[in-house]
């Protein structure tokens, strides 16, 4: 474990916490007769969270962590896997089933089809993998799918004119997590013998590049001290 990997995992964890915080705020705002301004913003506008992306992440973790009971790496790994599995499925549950959270979800804007991402990733995983076994193909599938799972969210952000702070932070933290993982791979490549994982690296690089555009607007909004807005 190096500092880049740890920092990457922590930003990933923070992104999940930001999302759970947002859901919690939406829940607790409802029913108040005089909502605070944050409640007002969250309840009156759509949440800006893409259910499609969240469902894809749940699928990513479900297929990647099949080894949770068979291969033991460390207590840290097992706990983190449980956290990511549990949080991704509960976020999906909240957006689909919780009556208040569901109301803040803008279904008409979030129109991306899962199918267009899942099928090519599955085919690619069947063709390009390190070992043709059930677990390994699904692990590879999860890498390919994770690389593109943010697309529905980025498209939704571009459509939603009003990006609230928490949604912006969420996407930023996810992007930071990917960038830190690249630093982790570079570090491991030079410090560990035989550390080569081409499939992980290339899909991870593609994933990080998808955030480039968002990062550009995120940092310029910080620099100019204005609210984050993506061009139409």
């Amino acid at each position: 474990m190096n500092i880049f990997r740890l920092a990457g995992d922590m930003t990933h964890l923070m992104s999940v916490l930001v999302l759970l915080l947002k859901i919690h705020t939406i829940k607790s705002c409802a029913g108040k007769s005089y909502p605070c301004s944050l409640c007002f913003i969250l309840l009156e506008s759509s949440s800006g969270i893409s259910l499609k992306t969240q469902e894809l992440y749940a699928l990513v973790f479900a297929t990647r962590y099949l080894d949770i009971f068979t291969d033991f790496i460390s207590v840290y790994n097992t706990i983190m896997k449980l956290i990511f599995l549990g949080s991704s499925f509960s976020i999906v549950w909240y957006i689909r089933r919780h009556k208040i959270v569901r109301r803040s979800y803008d279904k008409d804007q979030d129109t991306f089809r899962h199918f267009f991402l899942v099928l090519p990733c599955l085919l690619l995983a069947l063709i390009i993998n390190e070992k043709f076994t059930f677990k390994e193909v699904l692990w590879t599938f999860s890498l390919y799918l994770e690389a593109v799972a943010i697309l529905p969210q980025l498209i939704l952000l571009q459509r939603t004119r009003n990006i609230d702070n928490l949604t912006g932070q969420y996407v930023f933290l996810l992007g930071a997590y990917r960038a830190l993982y690249i630093l982790n791979w570079i570090y491991r490549y030079f410090t560990e013998p035989h550390y080569v994982h081409w499939i992980t690296w290339i899909s991870g690089l593609v994933q990080t590049l998808l955030y480039a555009d968002f990062f550009y607007y995120y940092f310029s909004s910080l620099k100019n001290n204005v609210k984050l807005k993506l061009p139409a």
């Binding site: 995992d9 990933h12 790496i73 983190m80 990511f84 390190e130 692990w139």
Partner: peptide, 10 residues
Amino acid sequence: PHITVEHDEL
């Protein structure tokens, strides 16, 4: 050389 498939990352 034989590549061992090890997944120790998340």
